[in-house]
Design a protein around this nucleic acid. Structure first.
Lengths: 208, 208
DNA sequence: AGCTATTTTAAACGCGTGTTTGAATTAGGG
DNA sequence: CCCTAATTCAAACACGCGTTTAAAATAGCT
């Protein structure tokens, strides 16, 4: 395995676990069993390494997600919100075949990306992968056209918050749930729990 | 104004804006116009300062919140989830009379507390202010008794995610909303938007 | 006023960070 | 084999961090 890949693999796990600011290059390189200077040699800087970690997942995810959302817009005249949100399930779970625990790792990274670093990753994702967002809002709009664009704006951000927060602390939450309820829980189970929740939230009656 | 108070006031704004890890004691003390060593003299450590900042708000909020939730449990035989979540509104908005932009600042701090510092603030809040949590889950349980404790666990954490994430980036979101929709938005408006969302999310039909 | 305890101050400490350097090592093609 | 380019490596750099120190200033009490 190349040095570059070893760094990416070590970095993504540490980033997901402890955040971008909370992980040092020394932790990453010692975990990856490469020299400290290798990060700056291969990636240029820590910030570029973060982008590379995210890009590896986004490049795998975004085409599948875009086409799944696009299919809903084309095929169905009036999709349900449950269908829209369920469209995320397969592309996200596909990350598990791409990498061990890929789904969980990616969602945790996403959560970190929106809270660490005063949100520079939010900018990176929205500018580098705009197709995901436009397809998503189109699909939601087709499912619930009565929602004004402002109400949709807020509800979609609430939804992102639900997902991102849950996933960035999903390991801790899964631990608590397994102890308290004596039942095996995995990331797919959490996703299946969250879909009806966000679908109902977005579908909530409008109060004016 | 005492040095202690000057530090608390400067710290809470910087913490809310840039997170706990993202704010240095030097930023805080120069903003507060006090000596760097004053933090360690008056509070002992940065961690204790963080606790003090949070406690100042929690001591103001938690009795009002507990009694509002308690009142729902006592007065109403079957409250709606909208009533339960609306019970948060007055205690939260009361923080605005306690301090300028107190509601917004506190909610941002809360958001930071759950993502920074590998969640030591989550532990601090749940152990120091358990009454808030127990009253809340009781009220939700009375409103929606069909929900199993495990489903309630997840939905309440989804709800916390919605609130906490939205509020930790509420300044940026309010800016975007004001530009895109040409309409004055404030934190009370966001709270009123989020209540039907989370109420509908928690009230979502159970899929088994 | 004088003494004591409290508070403020400037300076430094030790440590960890991301990054850079320049030499040593390794690969790969003519 | 040899030369060159790519990579690895140990070491150091400059900087910012939280914390500590000990002297100076201030406040409060008798």
């Amino acid at each position: 395995m190349s040095t570059k890949t070893k760094i990416l693999n070590a970095a993504e796990l540490l980033f997901a676990d402890k955040g971008f600011n909370g992980t040092s290059l020394r932790e990453i390189t010692s975990q990856a069993e490469v020299n400290l200077a290798a990060v700056n040699y291969h990636f240029g800087s820590k910030k570029e390494l973060i982008k590379a970690v995210m890009s590896r997942y986004m490049n795998e995810l975004s085409p599948r997600l875009e086409s799944a959302l696009h299919a809903i817009c084309v095929d169905e005249v009036k999709p349900t919100l449950n269908e829209v949100f369920s469209a995320f399930l397969d592309p996200l779970l596909h990350l598990n075949t791409f990498k061990d625990n890929g789904t969980s790792t990616f969602l945790q990274l996403l959560g970190r990306g929106f809270t660490d670093n005063q949100g520079f990753l939010r900018w990176f994702l929205t500018t580098q992968y705009p197709g995901v967002f436009t397809n998503f809002t189109q699909a939601v709009n087709k499912a619930y056209p009565e929602l004004s664009s402002e109400e949709m704006f807020w509800r979609l951000h609430f939804t992102m918050g639900t997902i991102v927060f849950t996933m960035s602390s999903s390991d801790a939450l899964i631990d608590i749930a397994q102890n308290d309820f004596d039942r095996k829980v995995d990331i797919a189970g959490v996703i299946k729990q969250v879909i009806p929740y966000v679908a109902a939230g977005v579908a909530a009656p409008i109060i004016r």
